[in-house]
Amino acid sequence: MLDIVIEARKASLAPGMDVRRILPFRLRRMVGPFIFMDHAGPVDVAPEQTHNMDVLPHPHIGLSTVSYLFGGQVTHRDSLGVEQIIRPGEVNWMTAGSGIAHSERFEDPSALAGGNLEMIQTWVALPEKDEESTPAFTNYKPEQLPVYTDNGIWMRLIAGDAYGLRNDVKTHSPLFYLHVVLEPGARINLPTEHTERGIYVAKGSIEVSGRTYTVGQMLVFNKNAEPTIVARTPATLMLLGGEPLGERFIWWNFVSSRKERIEQAKADWKEGRIILPPNDNQEFVPLPEDKSKPAGGPAPQALS
């Protein structure tokens, strides 16, 4: 059974950088362990405006950020000293754990030419036992991510397990995350291994149970549903979900099972106890003014 349809909301991160924000949603804050999802682009800005799109160093706790590009490229730098350019088909998986800061910069104007930049950013909440784990970062290349093809169907497993596919992307709880491309008329069913499952329409349109859904909509299904997805046009989908972790609080870029941990993270960032990236430490995003409780809070500092 279809549980809810989430309509993406517009969020402006910088001049020329508007995103579709899907999660969290007031009526559905998580899908499995996924607690945040942004769809950025296609972005088309003048070369002289590229620097305005940079996401300055900012902190995270209690989650993993997952960056996946359809086009363009982004340079990631973090507290661990990692400097990594992410390109289409790769996965940047950064586990914040006890605390990390990172930046994402757009340093190649040609990567933005003609609206080439398009990316999906998600956050995966960590199980309680891993919320204070040591921060880590890994870049996975396309050849490490299995691809399946069938009549009119192409899919890449980004993380987890689904449809009999597995890879070595390190996760902390049962989940699945797939990039799926369908030709018109192609049909697939949602994987049945996981309790909570969602379909995000990134491009094109699909039909489920006689209704049509288009770009910017996420369909969330309960465990017993076995929907058939039919592509009405060429369609690009992100399929994701997994096992629920329980209640999580989210405030700005901080996620935790404990409200008091959110408060500690605020103080740690304000007092400089979360280290800036050593190769990008001349500027940073200050802590927003706190006008709400940890369950809400200011908008997350995406891209991630």
Rank of each mutant, 00 (worst) to 15 (best):
T171W: 11
R87G: 08
S12I: 15
H51S: 15
D44T: 11
L182H: 02
N279G: 09
E131Y: 00
I22K: 03
N92H: 02
E196W: 06
G296H: 04
A96C: 02
Y68W: 15
T149M: 04
N139K: 14
P288I: 09
M1G: 14
T233Q: 15
R77Q: 05
S209C: 10
V147Q: 12
L13H: 01
R21P: 00
D290I: 15
K270Q: 12
E247F: 07
P142R: 01
Y177R: 00
G99I: 11
W154A: 03
G89K: 04
R87L: 11
G114R: 09
T50G: 09
G152C: 06
R105V: 15
A101W: 01
A186S: 02
I6L: 11
A46V: 13
E193H: 04
R211T: 01
G198M: 02
G81F: 10
F34H: 02
I262K: 00
D38S: 02
K270A: 12
P288N: 08
T134H: 12
V45F: 02
L175W: 03
F70T: 05
L23S: 07
A159F: 03
Y177C: 01
T149K: 14
P174C: 11
V66I: 11
A235Y: 11
A295I: 13
G198Q: 00
N167E: 03
K203C: 10
V220K: 06
H179Y: 09
R187G: 12
E132Y: 15
A186L: 00
R105T: 14
L2A: 06
E263H: 08
F221L: 00
D130Y: 14
H39W: 00
I262W: 00
G81R: 13
L190P: 00
F25N: 14
S110E: 15
F176P: 06
I4Q: 03
H51P: 07
W154L: 01
Y213S: 06
E131C: 04
P227S: 11
T122S: 10
S133M: 08
G210I: 03
D161V: 15
F221Q: 01
P59L: 07
P127Y: 15
S98M: 14
P33E: 07
R211F: 07
S110T: 10
E131D: 05
N151S: 13
T192W: 06
P33A: 10
L157F: 03
R258Q: 12
I229L: 11
F137I: 06
N167Y: 10
S79C: 10
L63R: 07
G81K: 10
Y148W: 10
I262P: 04
P174A: 09
